[in-house]
């Protein structure tokens, strides 16, 4: 299948004030390579602050890259000017769905107008607008659409509002969508509905999706591939089935162990945890950035940065001890 998005060695640095006078470089993304094909979802998981949203925004060129390249359908857009992005219709073809279904919808606008807005901005005709809005509402199962177009956001549940957000992202016929924590603020009982919906729309509209999440368990149901990030870098990436079944990077293994499952036996055991918190990205550790929290770190980890290396087919890991872990010669938990 055709590649929709490709990032090559993407870096995004911020200059942030530190102390009274000085400034420091914050490496939000530090050399990320990733691609997404049509009808494919790649999940990006990791702790707060590891760079997930930055990755999403850079891939949409909502943020400029510091270094590296971003390709949309084979064309380098990393330096493309805004007018050109628009003239080539790239802006329409790349959309984002935000986390918060409550504040992201204008409370004074009707659902129909909210969904129509992007089309109006792009100067579509009335009939076209009506048709695209109805189709999008049908796609997100806000049916019958004529019943929803006249409602206001407060009349909808969190899950329904998030579906309005998705419809709004769909009206311009995108080929690439970034879904940034699309279900983290809605009730557990509606999450699966939204995620499964996103997946089926992705297939019917043949889109590529970047699914950003804290919740690695949901990645399983919606993504073909997953990238686990730590402090602006990819620690492990591969087919979702492979990474979840055979996690190799100590961080991934421990992250998976932190996910609660409903088992009454849990209360008699302590959970294996990752000690401490992610270090400040202003002052990242040398070598492997995970070494300060890694239970199996060795001297080499402090000094030398491990390269992302293929250990299983299509399954890459950046860890000096990956080979031992994979062989079962070393236990992380």
């Amino acid at each position: 299948m055709e590649e929709v998005i490709r990032l090559e060695g993407v870096k995004k640095y911020y200059e942030v004030r530190s102390g009274l006078l000085g400034s420091k470089i914050l490496k939000a993304l530090d050399g990320v390579t990733l691609s997404i094909r049509k009808k494919e979802t790649v999940a990006v998981v990791g702790e707060s602050g590891c760079g997930k949203s930055t990755l999403g925004r850079v891939s949409l060129r909502l943020l400029d890259v510091t270094d590296g390249r971003v390709f949309f359908k084979g064309q380098d857009i990393s330096m493309m000017r805004e007018e050109e992005l628009r003239a080539k219709s790239f802006r329409k073809k790349m959309q984002i769905i935000f986390q918060d279904p409550y504040s992201s919808l204008n409370p004074f606008m009707r659902i129909g107008d909210i969904v129509a807005e992007p089309l109006e901005i792009h100067g579509y005709r009335r009939e076209e607008i009506r048709e695209a809005v109805y189709r999008a509402l049908e796609d997100v199962k806000l049916v019958p659409p004529e019943e929803f177009v006249n409602r206001y956001p407060h009349e909808l549940s969190g899950g329904q509002r998030q579906r309005v957000n998705i419809a709004r992202a769909l009206v311009l016929g995108p080929e690439y969508i970034v879904a940034d924590e699309p279900v983290s603020m809605i009730d557990a009982s509606s999450r699966a509905e939204i995620l499964l919906l996103l997946k089926s729309i992705r297939d019917s509209r043949e889109m590529g999706v970047l699914y950003i999440t804290h919740d690695i368990a949901t990645a399983r149901y919606v993504s073909e591939r997953v990238a686990v990030m730590y402090l602006g870098e990819i620690a492990e990436t591969g087919l979702t089935t492979s990474v979840l079944k055979t996690p190799i990077h100590p961080y991934t293994i421990l992250l998976l162990n932190s996910v609660p499952e409903p088992d009454p036996a849990n209360r008699r055991r302590r959970r294996p945890v990752i000690k401490g918190e992610p270090p400040s990205p202003l002052n990242p550790p040398s070598g492997c950035k995970f070494h300060t929290r890694c239970p199996v770190a060795i001297e080499r980890c402090r000094i030398e940065k491990p390269a992302l290396t293929e250990y299983l087919p299509g399954h890459f890991v950046a860890c000096h001890r990956a080979e031992e872990i994979m062989r079962g010669a070393l236990s992380v938990t």
Partner: peptide, 23 residues
């Protein structure tokens, strides 16, 4: 029952369900 079924799991074959409607 439905709430339990809506929890995404790391293992096993079941696909999480959802509860239609709202509270």
């Amino acid at each position: 029952e439905k709430l339990l079924a809506s929890i995404p799991r790391l293992r096993g074959e079941t696909i999480p369900e959802f509860i239609p409607g709202r509270p």
